[in-house]
């Protein structure tokens, strides 16, 4: 009897969690203004890494032969990709200081699965912008998003299967995405309410353009080392640099 009640309780729980309304999409409170394109500024910079970076760990992909068809280069963990002191895969965004503007939703951004790795390893998109997920592998993947603010999901995708499209309705940083069929496949999605973000490239470089003049808090977020911020003021049509430095002491 107690067990039956327990079961009922559990079923009710999922019943309820299933009925949860999806989080309403993010909306600014006051009527929004448009940015004057004639006055916009650009912030660019380099993310560097000081000290000895953890050695990239080689991944053993032998548990799925479809991951190692043909000549595949060795696959390494991408938590710390440091190139001549430059740090890749850092998400840089305007954290604070933007006025109340409205932005058109950008076209879909793509996440590919290739050689049983995610390309890119870190990406940013806007609230409401589509994420198109492709499977370029001969392997079967599942894509499991472990969001906290947004609703999570898990879908499988056959080799060369149809693109999966997902959107995110709330701002959220470093949402882990994992494949449970190939548990080394991990990547991070960052969702913002505006289009002023970038991810550092192999040379640690990033560029954020189209910014209205103003004073901003700029933040650089790394999946393991967390966030660093800087205050920056840009005038109309200004180009400014802002560099960030992570170091081995940031490794937790």
């Amino acid at each position: 009897m107690k067990l039956a009640l327990g079961l009922l309780l559990i079923l009710l729980t999922i019943g309820c969690s299933k009925n949860e309304t999806p989080p309403a999409s993010y909306k600014p409170q006051a009527p929004a203004a448009k940015i004057d394109p004639a006055t916009t500024a650009t912030i660019s910079g380099v993310i560097s890494f000081d000290g000895a970076a953890p050695k990239p760990q080689q991944i053993d992909m032998s548990q799925d032969p479809a991951c190692v068809v043909g000549k595949v280069p060795p696959n390494f963990g991408e938590a710390y990709v440091v190139n001549g002191g430059h740090l890749q895969n850092v998400y840089v965004y305007i954290k604070d200081g933007l006025g109340n503007y409205s932005y058109p939703t950008p076209p879909p951004t793509t996440l590919d699965q290739k050689g049983c790795r995610y390309v890119p390893h870190v990406l940013g998109l806007m609230v409401g912008q589509k994420l198109r997920i492709l499977n370029s592998d001969p392997a079967m993947h599942n894509i499991h998003s472990m969001a906290h603010e947004n609703s999570g999901w898990n879908e499988s995708q056959y080799p060369g299967g149809d693109a999966i499209e997902q959107t995110f309705s709330k701002p959220e940083l470093m949402i882990p995405v994992q494949c449970n069929n190939h548990p080394w496949m991990k990547m991070y999605v960052n969702v913002s309410t505006h289009p002023f973000f970038a991810v550092s490239d192999a040379d640690g470089k990033f560029t954020i353009s189209g910014l209205p003049p103003g004073t901003y808090t700029l933040a650089a977020v790394h999946e393991k080392m967390g966030e660093k911020t800087a205050q920056i003021t840009v005038g109309a049509k200004y180009s400014k640099t802002a560099d960030f430095k992570f170091s081995s002491s940031d490794i937790k």
């Binding site: 548990q63 799925d64 032969p65 479809a66 991951c67 392997a139 079967m140 599942n142 494949c179 449970n180 069929n181 190939h182 548990p183």
Partner: peptide, 8 residues
């Protein structure tokens, strides 16, 4: 299903 990787 193909019994490879985590599916196995």
């Amino acid at each position: 299903p193909p019994m490879v990787g985590g599916i196995k």
